[in-house]
Design a protein around this nucleic acid. Structure first.
Lengths: 223, 223
DNA sequence: GTATTACTTACGGGTAACCGTAGCTAATAC
DNA sequence: GTATTAGCTACGGTTACCCGTAAGTAATAC
């Protein structure tokens, strides 16, 4: 299991929850370092590297309240970026209240973080799972943001999509569909948006054009 | 039943067959006039009108062999046209060996003929039926050319049509379908022909565009 | 042989679809 | 309030479709 862990969170309370989890995982107390500032955290990491005793796990929040101190790194994003910019091969677990899928996606793709755990009802259990997973070189995501990385999220077919495909199958032109949507207060209704949606649908269904799309959706019984 | 009948046919033999039929229908022999030339036939018709004793039925062939005589009207078509141009309200039964649907269609649409009987195995029976039908103010067509007037003929869906629609439903472009047909020796294969066929299909299925067409054909289980 | 008819093919102009880009708006985080 | 993000819209350029016309070809009648 990980030996030396750095915890970065401005909330001391949340901080203590993490400590319990680490204790449970038999990580020695004296090797668990806490920090309430990103700047401070980065310094600690650098120091440890210079001392040939680097951290082998970082658990950090994303959002940090401003206070009287002037800071370089105002958020977990900044800290993570700084770490990656310095090429520190440090596993990173984000532990945050933010559950925006786009944010999660961004951190995995851009900074190659190793896990994303949402603060909430199941935080302790999930954080444990996350640490174990990361130790096995695996990714981990909280249930809440599970599908941030799965393309299933984009593949969801909405009522709008069905209606759009139906109109197409009726032989309507894109601008006629646009008018129809406007008349029936269906939004979006612009021709441009209709084009965009159709493009997404074509990609999802691996269809080469509108005719192909309608054929496939009819085969699936969607329209 | 008809009283006075004019028969126009250059074949005396065929001519005699018609005479038998008329005799069978109790039409008096002296009121059945024969002619082997269209010019002559038209003169007879005009004469009869002037004499206030017009014919009430014409039975004519379409094709007349040329001989030494110089003629104005060289075919049954010409004779019929002349009759209609003169506004003679004379029922016309065409009795011909030609069984081209387009010819039949043309005569009905353009000259409003009343019946079309094909010379052949069932000529006597069909000619009888034709005369009786025309007497009842009904149309009559030989079985052989029955569907000349029915739109069913144009509505026939061929294997080619099915294959074409299938390719469309696969999302192929018209020129890709053209290539596919060329590779598989399916004819016609030009893009232009494919366009023409699709146009026919769209009209038949009352489809506004290719997508609409594919949707309708899938609904009908044709593809 | 010629004439006629149907069918196939080629081409050009107008329209719609397709695709990328960029600007705008609404919602949200901070 | 500002910053950020997702979603909607507008626009221009390329491609494909649609449609009419015309020319070429094959089959048939005569």
């Amino acid at each position: 299991m990980f030996k030396k862990v750095l915890i970065v969170d401005d909330h001391i309370t949340a901080n203590s929850g993490v400590l319990q989890v680490l204790e449970h995982l038999k990580i020695e107390k004296e090797n668990v370092i806490k920090s309430q500032y990103c700047d401070d955290a980065l310094l600690k990491i650098k120091r440890a590297v210079l001392d040939k005793d680097p951290y082998d796990l970082l658990i950090t929040d994303l959002h940090f309240k401003e206070d009287h101190r002037q800071v370089q790194l105002s958020s977990g994003d900044d800290l993570i970026k700084a770490i990656r910019d310095n090429n520190f091969a440090l596993p990173i677990i984000v532990f945050s209240g933010i559950s925006l899928l786009q944010k999660v996606r961004f951190l995995f793709k851009e900074f190659n973080i190793n896990a994303y755990v949402c603060k909430g009802r199941y935080a302790s259990r999930e954080l444990t799972q996350a640490i174990e997973a990361v130790y096995r070189k695996e990714q981990f995501l909280s249930l809440e943001v599970q599908n941030a990385l799965s393309p299933k999220n984009d593949l969801e077919i909405t009522d709008f999509d069905i209606e759009l495909a139906k109109q197409l199958s009726f032989g309507k032109l894109q601008n006629q569909i646009s008018d129809y949507f406007k008349d029936n207060n269906i939004t979006p209704s612009s021709v441009s948006s209709i084009e965009k949606r159709l493009n997404k649908l074509r990609i999802q269904f691996k269809a080469d054009n509108a005719t192909h799309l309608v054929a496939k959706m009819k085969d699936l019984g969607l329209i």
